[in-house]
Nucleic acid binder design. Structure first.
Lengths: 145, 145
DNA sequence: TTAATACCTAAACCTGACTTTAGGTCAAGG
DNA sequence: CCTTGACCTAAAGTCAGGTTTAGGTATTAA
């Protein structure tokens, strides 16, 4: 059993954020002893799932919905599974999108490096896209389609 | 040359968002003909960079700063390059983080599937972590460290 | 000629996710 | 005893990033 302060340190979250999650219904099973929250393994796993679902793009109220399904028991495993599948698709799309962003940054980095070398931009502009190194050309194409 | 409506369609952005970006100073070179914005290749590339920097985690005012560097000319290629490098690091961290999220979702998906098969949760809980398939065990470990 | 459509501005409004504030309880140490 | 620190609540405040509204101009199609 942990206090809110200990959990805040573990997850590197402000105490106020954890209270906010609790108030939003994201920690439905949490016990209290004379008003003070007692965090068990159950709550630690809940916080892990909250962070995961949040990063996958879900908003707080959708996470609350998920917690309601958790509370409801065996009947809702289908819905929970569907949610995880949906968020999996979202996360893979997000990763793909960030890989495109990475390609653009790679191209832009090269561009700046060349402009610094040349002392001007025109020389570099003249190299785009046919006189670019192969890897940069690929990055350029990935980010400009 | 394109109108704001055409550009909005190209980038799948609301017209109001593009006006908001312009007002924030993110399209410093944009020309107007009797008050109406004229989007050239220059602005299309600016919008591509805006989307890229936004997705990399930069806020609007930092993008505005970047556009100021663009305006300033050759002196600022160093700063721009440094920014691209910083955002590259941020994007790679974000991808790594999303890969962890993906692992958690994978584990949770398996968990729900098994719970549906078994008709109860206890059977599945008893399998964690030693009786899980290898790939799920790996996903579990990636998401629980 | 008038009606629809696309453009424009300034300013108010909205939303989500926190964060801060103000006021209070309780246990331990000096 | 009293002060420090960790906990608590309700409610107000904040911030980014838009979006909506209200009011106006200009061109085109019927």
């Amino acid at each position: 059993m942990y206090t809110i302060g200990q959990v805040a340190a573990m997850f590197d979250l402000p105490v106020s954020t954890i209270r906010y999650y609790d108030k939003a219904g994201l920690l439905p099973d949490i016990q209290r002893v004379s008003g003070i929250r007692q965090f068990s393994d159950n709550e630690l796993e809940a916080l892990r799932v909250i962070e995961c679902l949040k990063k996958s793009g879900l908003e707080i109220k959708a996470i609350k919905q998920f917690m309601d399904w958790n509370q409801a028991g065996n009947e809702t495993f289908g819905q929970r599974k569907t949610l995880f599948e949906k968020q999996m698709v979202a996360v893979e799309a997000e990763i793909a999108s960030l890989e495109k962003v990475r390609a653009m940054l790679r191209y832009k980095q090269w561009y700046c490096t060349e402009a610094i070398k040349a002392g001007n931009e025109e020389t570099v502009v003249a190299m785009v896209p046919d006189q670019m190194p192969t890897d940069i050309k690929q990055a350029y194409e990935r980010s400009h389609i």
